[in-house]
Computed example of a mutant assay.
Amino acid sequence: MGDGTIAPVHIKDVVIGEGSSKIIVPLTGRTPDDLHTQVGALTGGPADIVEWRVDFFDELDDHASVAAQAHGLARQLDGTPLLATCRTAHEGGQAVIDDRTYADLNVALTESGAVDLVDVEYRRDPEVVQRIIAAAHTGGVAVVASNHDFDGTPDRDEIVSRLRAMQDLGADICKIAVMPRSAADVLTLLDATRIMHEQYATRPLITMSMGALGVISRLGGQVFGSAATFGTVGAASAPGQVDAAALRAVLELLDRSR
């Protein structure tokens, strides 16, 4: 049970869980040249954190190449925190890999010294999840435990239950994304976020309702307790992501209003 105190996560100069929602911008390039170009487009832009969607990378099977690319991105980002995410097909991503390969890849990323946060799909094999979390924390890498439900929106208590399970695993940030079929589903996600934030959370949350119906959750999620949101500079990595510059303007308007 939370006591109303959220422990913010400090990543370089970014504090997640305090102040305005942080903007995370994904990179989906398949080659080093693609990624270099995408990072170049971010210069001077609104990204607080950059997410490398490793599952799009053509050399995903070569963990040494993945680690080398992570170092290249970190150098080019020059201080902007880097979140490494290998999203599997089961949760809407590109990677079709077994649990052991998933663990080996993510451990290699955490041990590379190049990434600041790593995404872990919390519903994978429990031993795999714990192995990645332990490796990340040993290396000073923050863990974003995640769950992506493209089939629909679970009920409010189930969403809260999943977020609490991520927290119990020792994740530093708990993230859930769900697919709405109605406006009521969006309200369910937002109310679950509020309840988790007010009653149970001891660490930051990232929540969103995907697709066109759910855009409001990406814009105003911080009102309900979501500490970060995803915006695009170029290609989106999930349905419903909006332009990061426009997103920054909305977040600043909300801050002034509050």
Rank of each mutant, 00 (worst) to 15 (best):
V144E: 06
R124C: 13
V223Q: 14
D191F: 03
L42M: 08
L189R: 07
G4C: 05
A70I: 14
T138L: 09
Q38M: 11
N106H: 15
D185I: 10
A68H: 15
W52F: 05
L82F: 10
P81L: 00
I195N: 05
F230W: 02
L219G: 04
I49S: 02
G240R: 03
H63G: 03
V120C: 01
I159G: 00
F56C: 07
G45I: 01
R248A: 14
G4H: 04
V242L: 15
A145Q: 01
G140T: 10
A70E: 07
E158A: 15
A47V: 01
M196I: 13
E127L: 12
L83R: 00
D3R: 15
A142V: 02
L163R: 01
R30M: 13
D3I: 14
H148F: 09
T153Y: 04
T207W: 05
Q76G: 04
A171D: 04
D151K: 04
G231T: 07
V66P: 01
A177K: 03
A68D: 15
D34S: 05
V66I: 11
V66A: 13
D99F: 01
V186K: 10
P32M: 00
V143L: 03
Q38Y: 06
G221N: 03
F150I: 05
R248D: 15
F230Y: 10
M210G: 06
G19A: 10
T28N: 14
G214Q: 11
V128R: 01
V160C: 13
A7C: 10
L251F: 08
C174V: 13
P239N: 10
A136S: 09
A84K: 06
E252G: 10
L27M: 09
D172Q: 13
V160Q: 12
I206W: 06
A244K: 00
Q130Y: 04
T110R: 05
I97V: 15
T85P: 04
Q38D: 12
R194I: 04
T101P: 00
D151L: 10
A245G: 15
L77Q: 06
S226G: 03
A108S: 14
A142T: 00
I159D: 07
T188V: 15
A67E: 08
R164D: 12
L105C: 07
T85C: 09
G92P: 14
N147I: 07
L83G: 00
I133P: 00
G139N: 15
I132P: 02
G214S: 11
F56P: 04
T80C: 10
T5H: 14
I176S: 03
A103D: 06
H197F: 11
L82D: 07
V66K: 08
I23Q: 05
M208Q: 08
S257N: 13
I49G: 01
T193K: 05
T5E: 13
P154C: 11
V54Y: 02
D33M: 04
I24A: 00
L219D: 09
D151H: 07
Q222D: 15
R258Q: 14
T43Y: 05
L73G: 02
L254G: 14
V120D: 03
D119W: 08
D151C: 06
N147V: 12
Y200Q: 11
A134M: 07
D33A: 12
R203F: 01
H10S: 02
E198R: 15
V186G: 05
